[in-house]
Amino acid sequence: MMKSRRFFAVFLLVSLLVAGVGSYYASSHPDGLEYVAGKTGFGDSAKDSATADSPFADYGVKGIDNARLSGGLAGVVGCVVVLVLAGGLFLVVRRRSDDEA
């Protein structure tokens, strides 16, 4: 069986590659909801998000023109933020091994 440290490292590496490199090749077609909204006539009721001016809005880094770099960097930043938030939360929530189960 794969050692835990190696297994976790591979899992993280795959995520970073998917977000940092693979995301460039994502389809730019509207997603299911967006498409249906447009087709059935409620697409225009969407409003700009209050965070539309975020430096990472729409999975790009403001100020970086190279699409591959901009998207990849935003993806990696997002992964790190999710890992820190979720990982931190789960470490707090978990049962410690010295706890009674």
């Binding site: 998917v18 693979g22 994502a26 998207g71 979720a86 990982g87 931190g88 470490l91 929530v93 091994s97």
Partner: peptide, 23 residues
Amino acid sequence: LDDRTAPLAGLVATFVFAAQMIN
């Protein structure tokens, strides 16, 4: 979640974020 599964759970969240970037 325990000491063994908590790290995996954090990585699962990270993977879901990454995978959602690929339409």
